[in-house]
């Protein structure tokens, strides 16, 4: 069996005295979609940000495609990498944020081209053609020259997904991608994510969209207070959970 795309063993993280992650064990296989659910403050977003080292971990091992993220192991110690080395690793991990975080001073097309041209050193005409294709793929082929402020939230988020895909990542992280959207715009973004999953992209998705998790997810992970409460087939975990805490959460959101 191929090595898992994401492998977490006892990942711990604390802010001062507050323990945010209390030993997370999690495996995401290649081509799978893993949905992280749970109440706010459960640590699911923090865990997601640990995967591409936007947050440092305080203990445990977290590897992507067999390689530690942000650390190098020497004996029984993990040594943190320099920012420039971490940047190298992050190229293969796409991330989509709750608040889109598009670059407001660049057009949709320039947003997508920026990293391929400046980081991957792709020549700009190739990058432009690929960016156009990606925009068409997320259904925004006619919005290339629009600035983010001229796009709706749903359109911005789709551009953000295209921007992350432009680096040809092997793993995509989604941090509540639809939480900041008006309800009628959620569908378009979920459609793009559904297509992406169907194409075989490995995805870790922090979401409150129970329906999406049931339909698209290969695994659902329910977290609360920094621990994994329950994990497994979303059609089981999110329909007929074993744990009381999961039941209580689902009864509130459904």
């Amino acid at each position: 069996m191929a090595r898992p795309m994401v492998h977490a063993q006892g990942v711990r993280k604390h802010y001062g005295k507050l323990d945010v992650l209390k030993g997370i064990d999690l495996t995401v296989e290649r081509g799978q979609v893993c949905c992280l659910l749970g109440p706010s403050g459960s640590g699911k977003s923090t865990f997601l940000r640990c995967i591409n080292h936007l947050e440092k971990v305080d203990g445990g091992r977290l590897s992507v495609d067999g390689e530690l993220v942000g650390y190098r192991q020497r004996g029984d110690r993990l040594h943190e990498m320099r920012e420039s080395e971490v940047a190298e690793r992050r190229r293969e991990i796409g991330m989509v944020f709750q608040r889109f975080n598009l670059f407001p001073h660049l057009t949709a097309l320039e947003n997508i081209m920026e990293a391929p041209v400046r980081v991957a050193k792709v020549n700009s005409s190739t990058a432009k053609a690929e960016a156009q294709m990606l925009l068409a793929r997320v259904g925004l082929g006619d919005r290339a020259d629009h600035y983010p402020a001229q796009l709706s939230g749903g359109q911005q988020q789709r551009v953000a997904i295209a921007r992350a895909l432009a680096m040809k990542p092997k793993l995509m992280l989604f941090d509540e991608p639809t939480s900041a959207l008006d309800p009628e715009l959620v569908g378009d973004v979920l459609d793009v994510m559904r297509d992406l999953a169907a194409d075989g992209m490995t995805m870790v998705v922090v979401t409150h969209e129970i329906g999406f998790a049931r339909e698209v997810g290969d695994t659902a992970v329910f977290m609360d207070e920094g621990v994994v409460v329950e994990a497994g087939d979303p059609r089981k975990v999110l329909v007929d959970p074993e744990q009381e805490r999961t039941k209580a959460f689902l009864s509130k959101v459904l």
Binding site: N52, L54, E83, S84, A87, E88, R90, R91, I93, G94, M95, F97, N101, L102, F103, E114, A115, R118, V119, A120, A160, R163, A164, M167
Partner: peptide
């Protein structure tokens, strides 16, 4: 800055 870093940009 987070978005830029997540795309692999150095600081």
């Amino acid at each position: 800055a987070e978005a830029a870093h997540s795309l692999g940009m150095k600081p």
